[in-house]
Every structure is written in C-alpha cells, then in structure tokens.
Design a protein around this nucleic acid. Structure first.
Length: 771
DNA sequence: CGTTGGGGGGTTTTT
DNA sequence: CCCCCCAACG
C-alpha cells in the first residue's frame, strides 16, 4: 500500500481535487499526522471531508475498512457515505466504520459485550425507557419523587456519563446533587438494573467502550492498528466521553496518529448537553505537531450577511478566531425591524413571504428560525389562516411517538422474554384489565424469584395468586405471545407485525379513540410497517431502530421551513427570518442565569449560526410586547442587535412595509408602534458613536448577568427630550395592549403602571398615551 | 378501571 | 397560558 507524504501523488485520477481552493486542497492532502480543520460556516466543510476520504481511498493509502469516520447524526453519516460513493465510483459499500459515535460504539460493544457483563444481544434503551426505569428505582429507595424527579436524575446520570464517569468515580459533592447525597447510590442501582435487563442507555454505549479499552489494552491495540485514518466531524460538539474515546482510539503505537478533526468553535451550540468547546480549543496540545488549516472563504452568503455575523461573533472572548470572507459583494443588508407583538411579527413575516413568492421565488427557499419552539405557535396560526404552506422541522421524532414505542414494545416482547420494560409497557395496552396492583404483584414476584416479568406471569397464573379478570387476561395475553412467536418463525416480519397490532387490539384501540390525533397515529403505524419492510428481518430492524431509524419526510414540497435554531445547523436558505430577538428570549434568560458568561457566549454562537444560514437575505425582528406564560410583558431588543455592525444593517420600519405591500392596515396601534420604533432606531443609530452609547456599552458589560431590564440606556431608549418626563405618578394612561391604568412609578423611559384589567406591568413610555 | 380536575412547571436535542 | 402528570373519585 502506497503510504507517504501527502501530495506526492496527485495525478490525473484525482479529478475531485479540481475546484478546491488552496486551503481546502491542503486539508484534503495532509493525510498524515494529526490535523485540525477549522471550517467556518459555509466554507465547504463537507466537500473537504468527502474529498479527503476519497483521496485516501483513491491513493490506496487504506482499505475502506481501515478508516474510522464519525459524525453526530445519522443524516450526516448517510450524506457522507453517499458523497464519498459518488467520488470514488460507488465502491464504498465497505466503509463499515463510518457512522455516528453511538452506532460505531454499539458495533464495538456487541463484539465485546461480555467484558462488561452484557450479552451481545443487549437492547438499547431510549430516554423514555430510561426514565421509567429510574422512576422505579427512586420509588424503591423511598425518595420523594416530586422533590427529586426521575427526569432530573436521568439528566444527572447522563451528564456523568458524558464526562466518562462510572458510579465509583462520582465525587461526594456530585453525588450530593440528588436526594441529599444519594446520587451515586442511585446511579449504581440503575447500572445494576440495566445489566440485569441486558440493556444499556445511549451514554453507556461509549462508556462501556471506554471501560473495555482501559481494562483490555490488547483489544484497544487491535483497534489502534486497525484504524489507519480517523475522521471526526463537528468536533466542537464532542463531549468528554467522546473525546476520551477518540483519544484512546487515536493512540498509535510508534507513528503519529492520522486523526483529522473538523469543526468550528464558533458553531458550538450544544454545551448544555455536555459538549466541550475546549476539546477543539486545545486540539493542538492534545496532539503535538498537529497541523491546523483554517477554511475562511465562504461560498454561501453575501458580504453583508457575513459582515453582520462576523461582527456579532467578535464579541465572544473564548474563540480561536477566524474571519470569513467572500467574493459575493453587494446584496441586501441584514434587516432589523421592531414590531408590536408576536401576532404582528407573524403577520409581517407571512407578508414578506408572500412577497417573496409573488416575486417568483419559492416557499422552500425560506426558513424561520426560532430560539424556542413555543415561538412557533404564532407563525403556525398565521400560516394556517393564510393557507401558507409550511412544515415544522424537528419536533417529536417518529420513533419517540407513543404508538411507535408501543408497537416496538410488542416486537421486543416477541423477540425476547426478558425485556421487562417492553413487557410492562404493553401488557395492559390496550386495556386488558390488568391494573396497577397486578403489575406490582408481578414485579414483586419476579424480583423474588429472580426471573423476568414474563416468566413471573407464567408462574403466577398457574396458581391462585392472581384472581379474576386480571388472571384470565394475563393467561390470554401469554397465549397470544406464544402464538405470535410461533408464527414469527414462518411469517415475514412485516406480516407478523401487522398481525400483532391487529390481534392484540392495538389498532382497534386507536380506531375507537375519540382523540383527534388517532388518525395520525394509525398512519404512523402504517409507516412503521413500511420502514420495517426496508430491513430483511425483524432482528435487523430492531438492531437499527434505536440508533438509526428516521423516516424520510417524503417528496419535497414547496413549503416554508419553521424550526429552532439548533435544528438549523448545517442547513442553508436564501431567505432567513430570525424573529424574537429580545433580551430574555434570545439570549435566553435561563442560559445566562445558569451559565453566566459561557451561557451568553453560547447564545451568541447560536445567533451566529442563525445569521450564517442565510444566503441572500437575513431578517431580524423584535417585539415590544411578548406574552410570557400567559401574562404580557414589555420586552427590549436583544443586545445581539446592538452588536451587529451598523454598516451591514438596515433598520426597517413597519410603516415602510405596509406602504410597500400596498395594504392598508388601519389598526392604529400597529402604525403607532411602527413609527415609534422608527424613531427609536434613528435615536439609537445616532447614539452609537455618542458618549452615551459608549457608556451604555461599558455598563452593559459590567452589568452582565443582572436582569437586562435594569440596564440603562438601551438602544430603544429615547433621547432625554422625549415625552417620558411628562408622565407623572398617579396619571391615568392608556396602553394599546393593557388598556387603562394609573402610573405608579417612573424610571427613565420605563413606567410602572397599575392597569385596571391587566394588573401591574412595567411598560415603555412610548407605548402609553394620556387619556 | 377510567375519567376529571388540581397542581406544578415551562430552552435548546441527538443518539 | 398550556401541557403533562398524578391523585382522587365515580
């Protein structure tokens, strides 16, 4: 096999190298030794990754089976497989080690399962199973489930696993974060229970790998020499456990490791689920002699979009620092518009989208990116009334839906008589008259006998332990299960699945249901059978279901995409709307409260991700009033808006829009609000270079972490000469949203008002008028 | 066993 | 305000 310094042999066969820019080419050709590719948004990262793989294969530097390439999502893995296949002529069927962290770890774990007391047939539990199990454990330990919820414990255990910590490594302090020090004990009990069930959760897949590699150096050595090249995508999103796993695998006895990681510290937005930006920041220290290639030429967005995004991200301290550039000069500036409230925001954005469409563009070129999914509501309402086609990206995953999980539970029971969680889930679904008491009795018996629930049922129904309806139902159920298992030997797996859902009364249950969603659920069950048919056997299906099943969203329709910023990562759209740019929403108050400066910086990266999704135009909105948990609050524009470099930003007024659209919206308050915002923005712009503006910037930095409402001199603050000084305590006023009220306190532009209907509120004076 | 209403809680999401 | 979970009741 030809191995040697990179770039030696780049003959005619390397057509894929054509059209790469110098940095991209460097990243592709530097195959030997550790390499960090810092790939900014839209710089052709995927192209580099796939070309690099193609190059290694093409040069005969390694067999497909000697390359480990990991991604976070199945989508990314699938895409990479396809694209490499295209480049090297479809001969990649054997890239067995290309996949997600979890699927590769699962593959390794199946080989060595017995070393961590599992059988290679272990099942992988999802979050729901995990929580149900933890609930039982918390109960068994006599802990108040209200005070200490299973969900919280699940998060805690996850975070420990993300850090690569086994129960014994949990410090007393960490342990103390649950039920007065019982954290470690419960974690341990949970792990024991998982072993009994021959199961593991997502975190375990990698954690067990670590245990195996650490305890059996010979095994690790095998993998070390097996994987000649390693490739890691989205390195900024790796957590400690994944990092340790990679480092162990990259240990190359003798030579240097050919590990290539690709990522962008500015796009690290998963800190809250354990990702450590630090991993990418210190790559060069971890792998001495590492080469670093920066991809800074952007092929996606216009100059103004990049300028705005770059200016924003510059406010972050903790970054390696890149400057994106483009040859795509000109284009529209990033627009910013203040609106009255969420319905107005939705109405205006919907109008913009209709404009876009009537200019001959497509709905599918448009995305609305929100910080939190609750913001989607007003858009959905508006789109439905207008009949504007849209789709929500993300949301509950197909295989997380109750009906799919129920169906899977039936299949799991079919396959295994020891899957207690699955058995428990469906033994009384649909209702068979097997109540709580019966289930508890069964669990107790199973534990006492040291057998599975199903075995316990078989034993207990032989005696008079359980009486009446419960006993009859259980017996009948067991008979059904036996029959299905027998039939499964001969029938195709899709047929048996259909038969089970039918004969168990499960489909009937939904047909009888008055629930509005039941029709959809039945549809989903049909899709499930469809998905199953793509696998040769039930085992093959179940093997993939927990890790890699996601259903294709069908043929592409011309629809607007509505999604959270998190699910927008990696995507791009000609037109991007970023609504809800308000303090407390974006940046999220919770983020800042819980994680301080780090939290704020992650929010800022999220905003950066949002803006850089846009190819032609990014439009930012903030509302003056927002309903938070039912009550109205006046809000102030996000600090991120102030951080956008003015030369790349254009302030739009609502008035302008309505004139342009030629629609007369006479609702007074909208026009009022619009002109007022236009005013305040003029004021803000003129203040940007003024001493007051500078002072505001300084104050804002100093006062970070405090409630933003307390920060003085925000951009929306009007000049001192405004009407606000005219409002006095005790004065009766009218507010368009809250109605009539009396001023109880004045504080600069902010008024505390006791409203007759809406109660006490803090409002900006510019939204208030005398009666 | 199934329904109803009171109470609590309420980013972001993958595997 | 809205949704989910559980407890108490029918």
């Amino acid at each position: 096999m030809a191995r040697g310094p990179a770039g030696q042999n780049t003959g005619d066969s390397s057509a894929y190298l054509e059209g790469l820019n110098p940095e991209q080419r460097d990243a592709v050709l530097s195959t030997e030794g550790p390499l960090l590719v810092l790939a900014g948004a839209g710089t052709g990262k995927t192209r580099v990754l796939t070309c690099r793989l193609a190059h290694i294969l093409n040069q005969g530097q390694a067999y497909p089976s000697q390359i480990l390439s990991v991604t976070f999502t199945n989508k990314a893995a699938r895409e990479m497989k396809e694209r490499v296949g295209d480049l090297v002529g479809g001969a990649v069927e054997g890239m067995p080690w290309m996949g997600t962290f979890h699927s590769i770890a699962a593959k390794i774990l199946r080989i060595h399962a017995e070393l961590v007391d599992l059988k290679s047939s272990f099942t992988i539990l999802d979050t729901d199973d995990q929580i149900r199990l933890l609930k039982q454990i918390i109960k068994a330990h006599n802990i108040d489930e209200k005070r200490w919820t299973a969900r919280y414990l699940a998060n805690l255990i996850d975070s420990w696993k993300n850090k690569g910590l086994l129960p014994d490594k949990i410090s007393a302090g960490d342990s103390h974060s649950f039920a007065d020090g019982k954290g470690r004990e419960l974690y341990k009990a949970y792990q024991t229970r998982l072993t009994q069930l021959n199961a593991c959760d997502f975190g375990d897949l990698l954690l067990h790998n670590l245990t195996i590699f650490q305890n059996y150096p010979d095994i690790l050595k095998k993998y070390n020499s097996k994987f000649r090249y390693m490739l890691v995508d989205e390195y900024q999103d790796t957590n400690v456990c994944q990092y340790l796993w990679l480092r162990l695998l990259a240990q190359n006895s003798g030579g240097s490791s050919n590990i290539c990681v690709v990522g962008d510290d500015d796009q690290s937005i998963y800190g809250w689920r354990g990702a450590e930006v630090d991993n990418i920041l210190r790559f060069e220290k971890d792998f001495p002699g590492a080469k670093v290639v920066k991809l800074e030429r952007n092929y996606r967005s216009t100059e103004h979009i990049l300028g705005a995004a770059s200016g924003l991200i510059r406010a972050n301290q903790d970054r390696l620092g890149k400057t994106l550039w483009t040859e795509d000069k000109g284009g529209n500036k990033v627009s910013v518009m203040g609106v009255w409230d969420a319905p107005a925001e939705a109405r205006i954005i919907a109008g913009e989208i209709e404009n876009w469409k009537s200019n001959g563009r497509r709905y599918s070129e448009v995305a609305i990116l929100v910080r939190a999914s609750r913001q989607m509501r007003s858009f959905e309402e508006r789109f439905i009334t207008l009949g504007l086609p849209y789709k929500v990206i993300g949301g509950p995953r197909f295989f997380e839906r109750a009906e799919i999980r129920d169906a899977h539970a039936y299949l799991r029971v079919l396959k295994s008589d020891t899957d207690d969680l699955a058995f428990e889930r469906i033994v009384n679904t649909p209702k068979r008259g097997i109540g709580n008491t019966t289930i508890q009795k069964l669990q107790l018996a199973a534990r006492a006998m040291g057998v599975s629930l199903e075995t316990a049922v078989r034993e207990l129904t032989k005696t008079d332990e359980i009486r009446g309806k419960a006993r009859t139902s259980l017996k009948a159920f067991i008979l059904d299960v036996d029959r299905w298992r027998k039939e499964a030997e001969t029938l195709p797996h899709t047929d048996i699945a259909e038969r089970i859902l039918d004969e168990s009364g499960y489909t009937q249950m939904w047909k009888d249901s008055k629930d509005a969603k039941s029709a959809g659920r039945l549809e989903n069950l049909k899709e499930l059978i469809q998905a199953m048919s793509e696998f040769p056997t039930l085992d093959a299906y179940l093997e993939h279901v927990s890790l890699v099943l996601d259903v294709d969203s069908g043929p592409k329709e011309d629809e607007v995409s509505l999604m959270t910023l998190h699910s927008a990562k990696g995507l791009e759209f000609p037109l991007v709307f970023l609504p809800g740019m308000e303090e407390g929403i974006f940046p999220s108050q919770k983020s800042m409260d819980e994680n301080g400066l780090a939290g704020l910086e992650e929010e800022r990266r999220l905003a950066y991700v949002g803006i850089t999704r846009a190819r032609e135009q990014a439009k930012i909105y903030f509302a003056a009033n927002r309903q938070v948990y039912g009550s109205w609050q006046s809000s102030i524009p996000s600090r991120f808006i102030d951080e956008l470099p003015p030369q790349h930003v254009e302030v739009e007024s609502e008035t302008g829009y309505f004139e342009q659209a030629g629609r007369k919206q006479s609702s007074d308050y909208v026009m009022e609000a619009a002109s007022r915002f236009a005013d305040s923005f003029e004021a803000a712009k003129s203040q940007r270079t003024s001493p007051g503006w500078q002072r505001y910037q300084e104050n804002r930095n100093k006062n970070f972490g405090r409630a933003p409402k307390e920060i003085e001199g925000h951009a929306v603050k009007r000049p001192a000469a405004n009407k606000s000084s005219n409002f006095k305590v005790g004065e009766r006023i009218f507010h368009q949203k809250f109605g009539y009220g009396t001023v109880t306190e004045t504080n600069g532009t902010k008024l505390s008002v006791s409203f007759e209907k809406a109660g006490d509120k803090m409002v900006l004076d510019s939204f208030v008028e005398r009666t």
